[in-house]
Design a binder for these strands. Structure first.
Length: 245
DNA sequence: CAATCGTCCTGCGGGC
DNA sequence: TGCCCGCAGGACGATT
């Protein structure tokens, strides 16, 4: 599932490869990421926006296959293949990307601690895990990294934000940065269909501590990792390290 | 308004 | 072996 680190990996690769190329007579001036969105800007201020959702792939000079839903042809003969097995993903061209971008909360890697505290205080009765995944509050975090962040911070996924003290809030904040940066350094997590713009898998899965580790032992304390449903999403945690109280 | 729940879709794994 | 059922999940819309 492409989350912030996976989209960031694709963004960096595509930026190197397609800035300056022309698509539909328009020149590509930038390739950006906003949350989990990949945004290709053109010189007339329009943008091509992608959301890869669960199974989307963007392959530069990739070979079209049965999974391919769209091929973008650049004027120099190179191309960009958009694959999506489960068809949840989308792309669209907009005259100006500002309206879409402003629906998102601050970038997970850019938000400062006071702003993060403010975000949590606005939702005192929210469970911390679904709130971390709510793009309107913080942009970029999905199911894999919310589990890994809360494990690193030693916070139970069902904790209500009003029960978090200053130290715990800071732990979550610091581990958002730490986990996402580490995942980017390893080109993201290849679970299900994720591959980067060159068709390569990310290496961060072997650094996962809890995600899809149900029944295995916690690497800190040896307790068996549990899986529960939170808002109908699989949620993995260590019942000892991430105690509810 | 905030929080929760159903929905979209398809590949895959378990069970018989 | 092959079929069927249920599960997985981001984000939107409906509901409470």
């Amino acid at each position: 599932m492409p989350e912030l680190p996976e989209v960031e990996t694709i963004k960096r690769q595509l930026a190197r490869k397609i800035i300056g190329k022309k698509l539909n007579k328009q020149k590509i001036t930038n390739v950006r990421r906003r949350g989990k969105l990949l945004i290709v800007d053109f010189n007339n201020n329009s943008s091509l926006i992608f959301h890869l959702k669960l199974t989307g792939q963007l392959l530069f000079d990739g070979k079209p296959s049965s999974l391919t839903r769209k091929v973008f042809y650049f004027e120099d003969g190179s191309l960009l293949v958009f694959n999506d097995a489960r068809k949840f993903g989308w792309w669209k061209i907009v005259k100006n990307s500002r309206a879409i971008e402003k629906q998102f909360g601050p970038e997970a890697l850019a938000v400062k601690l006071p702003a993060f505290r403010n975000i949590l205080s606005r939702r005192p009765n929210a469970k911390i895990k679904p709130l971390l995944m709510d793009q309107k509050f913080i942009a970029g975090i999905g199911n894999i990294y919310s589990c890994e962040i809360l494990y690193a911070a030693k916070i139970h996924p069902l904790r209500l934000t009003r029960t978090l003290n200053d130290k715990e809030t800071k732990q979550i904040f610091q581990n958002i940065k730490k986990i996402l940066k580490a995942a980017i350094e390893h080109q993201g997590s290849s679970v299900e269909y994720y591959i980067d713009a060159c068709g390569k898998k990310g290496n961060f899965v072997k650094h996962h501590q809890v995600y899809q580790k149900e029944g295995q032992r916690c690497r800190r304390c040896g307790t068996i990792i549990k899986r529960i449903k939170v808002g109908s999403r699989s949620t993995y945690f260590c019942p000892h390290c991430q105690s509810i109280c």
